[in-house]
Amino acid sequence: ICKIPGCTKRYTDPSSLRKHVKTVH
């Protein structure tokens, strides 16, 4: 789960989550 407030994205893969946070936030 993405911990950024207001973001509801969920990831099972930690590397995908990290990439999401870097690119989207």
Rank of each mutant, 00 (worst) to 15 (best):
K9V: 10
P5L: 01
G6T: 01
R18D: 15
K3Y: 14
S15P: 03
V24G: 12
I4C: 07
S16W: 02
T8E: 09
K19R: 11
Y11H: 08
I4H: 14
D13H: 03
K22Y: 13
K9D: 10
G6L: 02
K22H: 11
G6A: 03
G6N: 06
L17E: 12
H20C: 04
S16Q: 13
V24R: 07
R10E: 15
K3A: 04
I4F: 12
T12N: 14
V24Y: 07
K22N: 15
T12R: 05
H25W: 01
K19L: 13
G6F: 01
I4V: 08
K22L: 14
Y11L: 10
G6W: 01
K22E: 15
S16G: 08
S15N: 12
Y11G: 08
H20K: 02
K22M: 13
P5Q: 06
S16T: 10
H25L: 01
S16Y: 05
C2R: 00
P14H: 06
K22P: 03
V21G: 06
I4A: 06
Y11M: 11
K3V: 08
C2V: 02
H20P: 04
P5H: 03
T12A: 12
C2N: 06
H25S: 04
S15M: 10
K3H: 12
H20G: 05
D13S: 06
K22I: 12
Y11S: 14
T8Q: 09
P14K: 07
H20M: 03
T12C: 07
V24A: 14
Y11R: 03
R10D: 11
D13M: 03
K3G: 07
P5F: 06
T23P: 07
V21N: 02
K19V: 11
V21L: 07
C2Q: 06
S16L: 13
V21M: 10
V24P: 05
V21K: 00
I4N: 13
K19I: 11
I1H: 01
R18W: 12
K3P: 09
H25C: 04
K22C: 12
V21H: 09
L17H: 05
T23S: 10
H25G: 05
C7A: 02
I4P: 02
L17V: 04
S16P: 05
T23N: 10
D13L: 02
I1Y: 07
K3C: 09
G6D: 11
R10K: 14
Y11W: 03
T23R: 07
K19F: 08
R18F: 08
G6P: 01
V24D: 15
S15F: 06
R18I: 12
K22G: 10
V21W: 02
K3S: 12
L17M: 10
P14L: 12
I1A: 02
R18V: 14
C2D: 12
P14G: 09
I1K: 03
C7L: 01
K22A: 15
H25A: 06
R10T: 15
I1N: 08
H25E: 09
L17I: 02
S15W: 06
K19E: 15
D13R: 00
P14Y: 12
T12M: 03
H25T: 05
K3L: 07
P14A: 13
K3D: 14
H20T: 03
C2P: 03
C2T: 06
H20N: 06
T8I: 09
K3W: 08
R18T: 12
S15K: 14
T23H: 06
P5R: 02
T8C: 12
R10W: 08
P14E: 14
H25I: 01
T8V: 11
V24L: 03
K9E: 09
I1G: 02
V21E: 13
C2A: 03
P14N: 06
S15E: 14
I1E: 10
R10I: 09
G6I: 01
P5Y: 02
T23W: 05
H20E: 09
S16F: 07
V21C: 04
C2K: 00
S15R: 06
H20L: 01
C2M: 05
C7D: 04
T23Q: 13
C2H: 03
C2I: 02
H25F: 00
P14R: 05
K9T: 08
L17W: 03
V21Y: 06
G6S: 02
T12V: 05
R10G: 13
G6C: 00
I1F: 05
L17S: 05
T8M: 11
K9H: 09
S15V: 12
P5A: 07
H20A: 06
K19D: 15
H20Q: 09
R10P: 05
P5K: 01
S16D: 15
K3N: 11
D13E: 11
S16K: 12
S16M: 11
R18H: 13
V24K: 10
K22W: 11
S16C: 10
V24E: 15
I4D: 08
T23G: 07
I1M: 07
R10N: 12
R10S: 14
K19T: 11
K19W: 07
K9M: 09
H25D: 05
T8P: 03
G6H: 02
R10C: 13
L17G: 04
R18G: 14
D13V: 01
S16V: 11
K19S: 13
L17Y: 04
R10L: 06
I4W: 05
Y11F: 14
G6R: 00
K19N: 15
H20D: 08
Y11I: 11
H20S: 04
H25M: 02
K22V: 12
